[in-house]
Amino acid sequence: MPIDFLPILILLILSALMSGGMVFLSHLFGRKEPNPSKLSPYECGIPPVGDARLRFSVKFFVVAMLFIIFDFEGVTIYPWAVIFRKLHLFGLVEMGVFLGVLLIGLVYIWRKGALQWD
């Protein structure tokens, strides 16, 4: 029921106020004495080399795509798990096929080298 979610709304508002307030208070109390070297990016003491918007490995992107696939499939299993007692053997066979396909997919991406990080 929607009324069940009202306390969550209260919590959302209060914690947003608290976390925003902390940033604001720290801004209010902290002193400010900036100078160019203090504000430059930290690179272990030497002057920064190049820009930080560098290109990074495509592996991170691949992992993100795999996550979307597998997480969606995970969420599909949730409603099945809740009514599993009623589905009984039919549910087990159906989900066995589904999980089998999922595992074949995992073996495929593994053999393709999508999970190799060296």
């Binding site: 208070l25 720290s26 109390f29 902290g30 002193r31 400010k32 900036p34 504000l39 990016p41």
Partner: peptide, 12 residues
């Protein structure tokens, strides 16, 4: 202590 610390925002 952390509330009273200097606030800095990197230039970039």
């Amino acid at each position: 202590k952390l509330f009273l610390k200097e606030e800095f925002i990197p230039a970039q």
